[in-house]
Simulated scan of single mutants.
Amino acid sequence: MAMIFIGGSRDIVELPDAIVGRIASIVAAEHGILVGDAPGADTEVQALLGGHGYEHVGVFCAGDEPRNNLGDWAVYNVPPLPDIHGFEAGAQKDGEMVRRADYGLMIWNGMSPGTVLNVLRLAMAEKPCVTYDVANGLVTTTRDVVDWQTMLSRADPEIWDVLATRMTPDERLATTLG
């Protein structure tokens, strides 16, 4: 059973038909799904999986309890290191999902730094990721950092300013060597 990290932007409140179909295929193949607890894409994915009555799901959270666990699935708490808060705490949780995943499926609004950094983390680990850029109607598969950079070359250039404030030193280095 392959493990698939599914995530996306918080402002995604409806899953595109292509994502619904892709998730139905994942369910039919009985792959494991790793999903976060955030509102938006994570919650929409949880609602879809709950509608399928799907059981092979793990919900990851940085807090003591998940904000959302619509299917009462297994919870994996990834507590942040001391003095880590906000997006950095979420990045640690997401890093654990990348570590456990074989593949990624991201639903991106074209601007969310957290989602596109998860694609980078998967690329750095050489784990394929399909990204649906719902803002631009694009589907991209990344397998490495060069693929990720190509994907970002089509994004709004302003995203680089935001990414620069959120990347870890290892992520910055990977993007300069890619």
Rank of each mutant, 00 (worst) to 15 (best):
V134S: 07
P82D: 06
A135Q: 13
P82R: 13
T140H: 00
P128W: 05
Q92F: 07
A123L: 02
T142P: 02
S112G: 07
P82C: 12
V119L: 06
P128Q: 05
R100N: 04
T131Y: 04
D133E: 08
Y103P: 07
P113V: 15
D83M: 03
V98P: 05
P113R: 13
R121H: 05
V116I: 11
C129N: 01
L122Y: 07
P113H: 15
N136F: 12
T115V: 12
G86W: 03
E88H: 12
P80V: 03
H85V: 14
V134H: 02
I107M: 01
A89C: 03
P80K: 01
T140I: 08
T131M: 04
P128T: 00
G90M: 07
N118L: 14
L81P: 10
G114K: 06
T141S: 14
N136Q: 15
D94W: 01
D94V: 11
T115D: 08
T141M: 14
N109R: 10
D102F: 07
V139W: 15
M111L: 13
Y103Q: 12
E88K: 11
Q92R: 15
T142S: 12
V130Y: 11
A125C: 01
V116C: 09
P80F: 05
A135R: 11
T142G: 01
E88P: 08
M97R: 02
I107T: 08
E88R: 15
G110L: 07
T131C: 02
A125P: 05
V98A: 03
P82I: 14
T140E: 03
L122W: 07
D133I: 00
V119D: 10
T142I: 06
G86R: 01
W108I: 04
G95A: 02
F87I: 10
P82K: 12
L138P: 04
V134M: 08
M106S: 02
V134G: 08
G95T: 00
V134Y: 02
G114T: 02
L81A: 09
G95L: 14
I84T: 12
F87K: 13
K127A: 11
K93P: 06
V116E: 00
P80S: 11
Q92V: 02
P82Q: 12
W108H: 00
G114C: 01
Y132F: 04
P82L: 09
N109G: 13
L138T: 11
I107R: 10
V116T: 09
L105Y: 14
A91W: 09
Y132A: 02
L81K: 15
K127D: 13
L117D: 10
V116Y: 04
Q92T: 05
L81I: 06
G90A: 08
H85I: 09
Y132N: 09
G86I: 04
P113Y: 15
G114S: 09
D102H: 10
M106K: 09
V130D: 14
M124Y: 01
E88C: 11
H85F: 09
L138R: 15
K93T: 03
T140V: 09
A135H: 10
V139Y: 13
H85N: 12
A135L: 03
G110I: 05
I84Q: 09
E88G: 07
